[in-house]
Amino acid sequence: MSVYSFYIFDRHTECIYSKRFTQQPSPPRTTNPAASTLPNGGTTVPASLRQANKDSDDAKLVFGTVFSLRRMCRQLGGVDDQFLSYRTAEYKLHYLETPTQLRLVLLTSPQVGNMRTVLHQIWATLFVEYVVKSPLAPTEHQGGRGVGNELFEEGLERFMQQQQQQQ
């Protein structure tokens, strides 16, 4: 299996952490010369900034998708129904919501099974240990403050490598 990306959203619907485990293709480099020859050239956005914009847009889209699907599941299955995952031919999205309305989203290759326990482990052994219990992290992680600390990043990296080796 391969893990594509991972997002954490807080209860204010803000993306407080996101990580991509795959390299995106870099078409901007090849399209740049063509773009500069266009009449509206001159306002070319640097590739890094464009990538950052795309990442934050992606996070918003992921949240919107998850939010709507969660609502749909509640509407159809009753109030205690939980949205677990969806699958397309290219990827699979796993979702976990904690009692504090922290939402963890993991995107993997489509062949993997249920990753709910994995998400729960990330929350319990990494997020709670390294972020919630960190004296330096604020209670509300506005703009992702206090989440992306060294211990958490390292732990997540190691955890994902373990997962990829196991499967």
Partner: peptide
């Protein structure tokens, strides 16, 4: 073409919740 389009993706094929 260098500005290659992404392959056509399928969208949601199956969705699981705890009830259905």
């Amino acid at each position: 073409n260098p500005t290659r389009k992404r392959p056509h993706t399928t969208g949601i094929e199956s969705l699981e919740s705890s009830h259905f």
